[in-house]
Amino acid sequence: MATKAVCVLKGDGPVQGIINFEQKESNGPVKVWGSIKGLTEGLHGFHVHEFGDNTAGCTSAGPHFNPLSRKHGGPKDEERHVGDLGNVTADKDGVADVSIEDSVISLSGDHCIIGRTLVVHEKADDLGKGGNEESTKTGNAGSRLACGVIGIAQ
């Protein structure tokens, strides 16, 4: 089992970053940390998408990683996509320092995120509470600013 993974985020604009993942036990939580720069100040949706395909930019990554066919939600919700990591918060300089621990994603097994795409979005994720159909699919997080395929790390 891989215990570490990394993702280099890039987009068409100024947004870029490096996100690290570490899972010490196969059924334990995954620590997610790193930094994203070039964002507007505020909240930005942060999700693992189904495919590791960036051939047409971030759009070819498909929908959120959702092997259990659930509705979109927040990272602490029972009803959520596996890939729903909530929001990252950018400061006035456009930098989001990421520090998350998640017990639904994994670096092995059915919820493995390796080979899938991590995406940072234009807007805040409403965590499935926006009151419309799009909220239950995407959290109304808007366009995909930057993305990268999650790969095994040393």
Rank of each mutant, 00 (worst) to 15 (best):
A2W: 05
T3E: 03
T3C: 14
T3D: 10
K4P: 00
K4L: 11
A5I: 02
A5G: 07
V8W: 14
V8G: 04
V8T: 11
L9D: 05
L9C: 02
K10H: 11
K10M: 14
G11M: 00
G11F: 00
D12E: 13
G13W: 05
G13L: 06
P14V: 14
V15Y: 02
V15N: 02
G17T: 05
I18W: 03
I18C: 10
I18F: 08
I18Y: 15
I19V: 09
I19H: 00
E22R: 06
Q23D: 02
Q23W: 01
Q23V: 01
Q23H: 09
K24E: 11
E25W: 02
S26L: 07
N27F: 04
P29E: 02
V30Q: 02
V30E: 03
V32M: 13
V32R: 02
V32C: 12
W33Q: 14
G34H: 01
S35P: 03
S35W: 10
S35A: 09
I36D: 04
K37F: 13
K37Q: 05
G38E: 01
T40K: 09
E41Y: 04
E41R: 06
L43G: 08
L43S: 04
F46R: 01
F46K: 03
H47Y: 08
H47S: 05
E50Q: 10
F51K: 15
F51D: 15
F51S: 15
D53T: 09
D53Y: 12
N54T: 14
N54V: 10
T55D: 14
A56C: 08
A56R: 11
A56N: 10
G57D: 04
T59R: 14
T59W: 13
T59Q: 10
S60C: 09
S60W: 15
A61C: 11
A61V: 11
G62C: 14
P63S: 15
F65I: 06
N66F: 03
N66L: 04
L68Y: 05
L68A: 07
R70S: 07
H72V: 04
G73L: 14
G74S: 13
G74W: 08
P75S: 11
P75M: 08
K76P: 11
D77G: 08
E78L: 13
E78Y: 11
E78F: 08
E78T: 12
E79C: 13
R80K: 06
H81R: 05
H81D: 07
G83Q: 08
G83M: 07
G83C: 12
G83F: 14
D84E: 09
D84Y: 05
D84P: 01
D84N: 14
L85A: 00
G86V: 05
N87L: 07
N87H: 07
N87E: 04
T89I: 15
A90E: 03
K92V: 10
D93K: 09
V95D: 11
D97M: 14
D97V: 12
D97P: 15
V98C: 04
S99P: 09
S99D: 11
S99Y: 14
S99T: 09
D102V: 09
S103P: 15
S103W: 05
V104A: 10
I105G: 02
I105R: 02
S108N: 08
S108Q: 06
G109M: 01
D110V: 14
D110A: 09
H111K: 15
H111I: 05
H111N: 14
C112F: 07
C112V: 02
C112I: 02
I113Q: 00
I113K: 00
I113R: 01
I113M: 04
I114W: 00
I114T: 04
G115N: 02
G115S: 05
R116V: 02
R116C: 11
R116F: 03
R116Q: 07
R116G: 04
T117N: 07
T117R: 08
L118D: 01
V120T: 02
V120N: 00
H121M: 11
H121W: 11
H121C: 11
E122Q: 06
E122W: 02
A124C: 11
A124E: 08
A124V: 09
A124D: 09
D126N: 10
L127N: 10
L127Q: 09
G130M: 11
G130E: 14
E133L: 12
E133Q: 09
S135M: 07
S135Y: 06
T136D: 11
T136P: 11
T138W: 06
T138S: 10
T138M: 03
G139Y: 08
G139D: 05
G139R: 08
G139S: 07
N140H: 06
A141Q: 05
G142E: 07
G142Q: 04
S143K: 11
S143G: 11
S143Y: 09
R144I: 15
R144A: 15
R144C: 10
L145H: 04
L145C: 08
C147W: 13
C147H: 08
C147I: 14
G148V: 04
G148A: 00
G148C: 05
V149K: 10
V149P: 04
V149N: 04
I150L: 01
G151T: 15
A153F: 07
